[in-house]
Amino acid sequence: MHYLMSVELDQSGPRPTEAEQERNFARVGAVNDEMKAQGIWVFAGGLLPYDSATVVRVQDGTTTMTDGPFAETKEQLAGFWVIEVEDLDAALGWAEKCAEACEAPIEVRPFDGLA
């Protein structure tokens, strides 16, 4: 099964220092390497902060674009993994590693289907 593991971070506070960020990258990189070695890694990526987001809406043939994310909540999507594993237990095991690496909670959701 394919699972999306997403991490939401509070990006309203001070940005992490460069040293913190590097440590973070190193930890997440190690998890990614492990996933690839196990053959369960499908795709992963980190996102730039939410102030870089734009929302596009089409309503009655009219397109509007607004600056910013869907909702101005404190916690915003910061990155995600897509993995392919046997079952939820396997996904939860990986989510634990990701949560440790990011020092943030991970939401695990199964895909309904893949294009």
């Binding site: 099964m1 699972y3 046997e86 079952d87 939820l88 237990d89 996904a91 695990v108 959701r109 199964p110």
Partner: peptide, 9 residues
């Protein structure tokens, strides 16, 4: 839906 397995952990 979430693929909770059917086995003894």
């Amino acid at each position: 839906d979430a693929g909770i397995p059917y086995r003894v952990p």
